[in-house]
Design a protein around this nucleic acid. Sequence first.
DNA 1: TTCGATTAATGCATATTACGCATTTATAAA
DNA 2: TTTATAAATGCGTAATATGCATTAATCGAA
Lengths: 304, 304
Amino acid sequence: MVSRTSDLTPDATLLKSFLILAEELNFRRTAERLAIDQSALSRRIKKLESLLDYKLLERTTRDVALTAAGQELCKGLTPVLTDYAHSVEAARRVAEGKTGRVRVAYMAFAATEMVPQTVARFQQQYPDIDLELRYIRTQGQKMALANDEIDLGYMIGPFDNAEYHSLQLADERLYVVTPKNHALLRKHTLSPRDLKDEKLVLGDMEEWGEYRWKLEDVFSQHGMRLSPALEATNTLALIGLVAAGLGITIYPESLLNFLGRRVEARPVVHPDFRSKTVLVWKRSNRSRAVLNFVEVSRHLQVRG
Amino acid sequence: MVSRTSDLTPDATLLKSFLILAEELNFRRTAERLAIDQSALSRRIKKLESLLDYKLLERTTRDVALTAAGQELCKGLTPVLTDYAHSVEAARRVAEGKTGRVRVAYMAFAATEMVPQTVARFQQQYPDIDLELRYIRTQGQKMALANDEIDLGYMIGPFDNAEYHSLQLADERLYVVTPKNHALLRKHTLSPRDLKDEKLVLGDMEEWGEYRWKLEDVFSQHGMRLSPALEATNTLALIGLVAAGLGITIYPESLLNFLGRRVEARPVVHPDFRSKTVLVWKRSNRSRAVLNFVEVSRHLQVRG
DNA sequence: TTCGATTAATGCATATTACGCATTTATAAA
DNA sequence: TTTATAAATGCGTAATATGCATTAATCGAA
């Protein structure tokens, strides 16, 4: 199945033969156009007529003319065949991922750069795809993927599951965020143990979700407890609390530009103090459009 | 080709198989509905996919699901196939003469009873036929038939031509029309020689056309000249002239009811003094609707 | 009228295609 | 692991479509 021309649309051969004959009103010429023997065309028409059980053409050896029924069928069939071809092509565009719908969820860390850039590039490359974006935190994305409510999720990784593909797109440092003039700022880079006695201000479970679990994990691995002096339900409020000197917090690199000027940040240089962002989708999701989105995302990752 | 069910519409088998499978999402059940082997269905779908060059269904041995392209095709194809079926059936109605157009011309002698009765019956029997009626004199009808501007003509006969069918529908006496108290009225029936010395008032060539030629012919066969004392361009005027005593004229039986009360009529009893009305159509016109009209006309003739 | 040219239809052998049956392969439940 | 069930595949056969050669019909020119 190599060549694919519009006349390959399945099995309208009889009808198309008839329509061309209705145009030419000459069996020999029509057969030539169809690249078949004249006798084959003759039989095709005969077969069509016997299937329909009414005559489409009056023919002598000299003249060929449409019957009234033939005219009617010709008139009715022409739009049907073009609609048919259009349906087939529309489906082909979907198959090729040029049309259709892609539902993408993202969490905060991907929202600042990764998602905007990918979306911009994707829409430029596939302008006819209906792209649906939703902000959902990592946990919710897992549910949504399982329920087929979304096709793709940018979530906090890692995520390893036999039913899903997972593509790591970022692996960024975590930063300690402090008020201005904080003692920790004297060093340009920090190590985990520098955090030992610091008071922490964290987003609550509702707000931080998976990130919070991740931090708990990292801290415990380093013999520390992630016991917040304060919890905030809102990011702006949280930064405000830090700025006011009520404690420090921990942010991924991608959000540093959104901290404002009342706080400072220093990287924690340690393999555990990193946050991975992964793009996840179901293995069973064979949608070409979805895979195209993944490809666009993958290519941008190199740059980012 | 005896049975004719809607699923006989030529060669949409692959598409229909796909649509039913899209409904059932189960090869075995679908194959049952199609009354073929499951393997055949499997191959049909495979063939359809290879023709289209994209997958329509994701299938494991356990689950069958439409791909996005499959959904799209299914959505687009459903109306296409119903339109297709409708086109075929519309053409069938034309083929059966239940739909379509019949263009009928008639001349005066048929206008009073024959055409109205036939039209009434025909429209009752074939309400969806678009019936076009035109008043055209015999000569014009012959032109119109030749040029395919009309399908049928009620004309003054006889009309014998190898390319046309001709059906005689009436053979009526000619009547002499006189003013009241005219000498000829003393006899209840006339013979041709009674007309020998009468002054004639006739329609002119434009108005009477073929009828006028016919009268010339009849008169000459009986050794008389058809030399009108007056010619009228209008029927009403003509009757007026007769009533005023300026001469007599000759009318077919079918028009007697339209003479008014100022004139009287007597039949000329002679085989030559008759007017035949024939219904004529091209042999090459195979339109079922036209033939149906002829049949209706033929049956009414018996009554008339 | 006859002959030549042209057209659609048909007989026949062949190639292609579709099908059913039997079997295999894959998956979910027990 | 076994069992049951579903879709896919190998293979032989039947149905179908095609091309070539020929026939039958019709028009136009000699």
